[in-house]
């Protein structure tokens, strides 16, 4: 009778025989690709990647939702408020906040997603309100002709390649 145990045993023995003597080159860490990359400094993570790696999967999901919600609304306003279209400022803030949230946790415990999400939400609300109250010019002077632009501030901003070059410039033709 070929029972499961017999087959398993045969499987394991055969696999061990197949791999026996196939150890390959010497496992000297100094000769490894990752070591070379490490020495060249090629393994640095970006700010956002570091943030993502620091938080749990659940936290990442919460953060992603929060950042998406805020990011969509803030994509245009971030440029106006910070004067920079580079999201690394925001990324660095998130990294700092993640570390702060981690420090606030008891050792060994998890779940900083809520803490980070709260920060992201607050940031988003702050940026949005600042943008509204400042009456900052939008990059879409003809936005009133497009109600959806104001009805859905969280929507994906339409692309205007010259918008950063001429933030206060005359209305350009809307595609």
């Amino acid at each position: 009778m070929v029972n499961g145990g017999g087959f398993d045993q045969w499987l394991e023995q055969t696999l061990q025989q197949e791999t026996a003597g196939r150890g390959g080159p010497s496992p000297d860490a100094a000769q490894a690709t990752y070591h070379a990359a490490y020495l060249q400094g090629g393994l640095q993570m970006s700010g956002l990647a570091t943030a993502a790696s620091l938080i749990s999967a659940k936290g990442a999901a919460g953060l992603a939702v929060a950042v998406l919600a805020v990011g969509a609304a803030g994509a245009t306003t971030e440029t106006v408020v910070t004067g920079s279209a580079n999201p690394s400022n925001w990324g660095q803030q998130v990294v700092k906040q993640v570390q702060t949230c981690k420090d606030a946790l008891a050792p060994g415990s998890h779940g900083i997603g809520e803490c980070v999400s709260t920060f992201a939400n607050q940031h988003g609300k702050q940026v949005s309100s600042e943008h509204r109250s400042s009456g900052a010019p939008t990059n879409h002077p003809s936005a009133t002709n497009h109600p959806s632009a104001t009805d859905h501030p969280g929507g994906k901003p339409t692309s205007h390649p010259n918008s950063t070059d001429h933030p206060t410039g005359p209305p350009t033709s809307h595609p």
């Binding site: 696999l15 197949e18 791999t19 196939r22 150890g23 390959g24 080159p25 496992p27 000297d28 860490a29 490894a32 990752y34 070591h35």
Partner: peptide, 19 residues
Amino acid sequence: DFDRLYRSTYQRIFATLVI
């Protein structure tokens, strides 16, 4: 620690990938 992990697992990982 990763270096240590590398040294202790390299042969088996390599043998697995040969299969």
